[in-house]
């Protein structure tokens, strides 16, 4: 390879890497500018009305991240350390299929529970369905990451545990789990960030609950910050309509970045799929 070609490729690689890295600050800058513009232009925005969205976002984030991490970690420990080879392959295939289900697939299935069954979409039912969906979505991602983390652990750890008389369950519980403690904490923070940003499936669930509540004069949860952002963004006809939700978008951006930074501060960098 000639030096000129080498220089060209190095420059192209640098530019591309910088361009990809610049996406986050650019997005932050645009959303921040929009939030300021919405204040300057006195675009209608009610923090009181958004309090419910913020509460639902945080609650679903906490429930989804905690249960999803627990479920994913437990499933990965069973699949990698305890299950028979045939069961391991079956679990890997089924959870792999679950991981590949698109968000609209989850959304259609969950919204159907409200649309085609007699279930009343009161806030508790809607929240339970939304929390279950977020938990399962996150658990499938955590499973993939945990399997990777377990495979990366040295075999000597298993050998030492076996030599000490531990069976597969004791090895998983007393050797593997403690070795991955920091990694699991990092996965929780990343899961929390992921749950905060989940929009498509949740918007479908809250949309279905709202549609059915309108028919039965019931009360419905208005949604989360991300689901409302999707709803507002997809129906915005101009700058003013788009700006209407800018402060909430800035808040969601800040919450997501903060959770990633807090996770890194607590446990260091954890690779995340």
């Amino acid at each position: 390879m000639s030096p000129a070609l080498e220089r060209f490729f190095v420059t192209a690689a640098r530019l591309c890497a910088v361009a990809v890295v610049a996406i986050a600050p650019l997005v932050g800058l645009v959303v921040f500018a929009a939030a300021v513009a919405s204040l300057v232009r006195h675009v209608e925005f009610s923090w009181d009305a958004s309090a419910g969205l913020i509460a639902a976002t945080l609650a679903l984030g906490l429930v989804g991240a905690t249960l999803g991490t627990a479920l994913g970690v437990g499933a990965a420990l069973y699949a990698v350390e305890i299950a028979t080879p045939a069961n391991r392959q079956l679990i890997k295939a089924l959870v792999g299929a679950l991981h590949a289900v698109p968000a609209v697939g989850y959304g259609v299935a969950a919204a159907g529970l409200l649309l085609v069954t007699p279930l009343l979409p009161n806030p508790a039912v809607t929240f339970s369905i939304a929390a279950t969906v977020v938990t399962v979505m996150i658990a499938s991602v955590v499973f993939v990451q945990m399997r990777r983390s377990l495979s990366a652990l040295p075999d000597q750890l298993r050998e030492a545990a076996t030599a000490a008389g531990a069976d597969a369950v004791a090895t998983a519980l007393r050797a593997m789990l403690p070795a991955l403690q920091r990694s699991i904490a990092g996965i929780w923070w990343a899961s929390f960030a992921l749950a905060l940003g989940e929009a498509t499936a949740l918007q479908m669930i809250f949309g279905a609950a709202s549609a059915k509540s309108a028919l039965s004069n019931g009360v419905a949860i208005s949604g989360t910050l991300a689901s409302m952002l999707l709803q507002v963004g997809a129906s915005a006809r101009g700058v003013d309509e788009a700006l209407r939700f800018a402060p909430a978008a800035l808040l969601l951006f800040a919450m997501t970045i903060a959770s990633v930074f807090l996770g890194r501060r607590a446990v260091g960098h954890v690779p995340w799929p």
Binding site: A17, V20, V21, I23, A24, L26, V27, V30, V31, A34, A190, A193, L194, L196, G197, E198, A199, A226, L229, L230, G233, A236, G238, V239, A242, L243, F245, A246, A249, L252, F253, T256, I257, V260, H269, P271, W272
Partner: peptide
């Protein structure tokens, strides 16, 4: 730092990136 920043970019929710693009396009 570059690798660390690359993984941070991936954690920004899609919906916010799309919303920022919508705002830029509308502007």
């Amino acid at each position: 730092s570059m690798r660390s920043a690359l993984s941070l970019v991936g954690s920004v929710p899609t919906v916010i990136v799309a919303y920022a693009a919508l705002l830029a396009a509308a502007a």
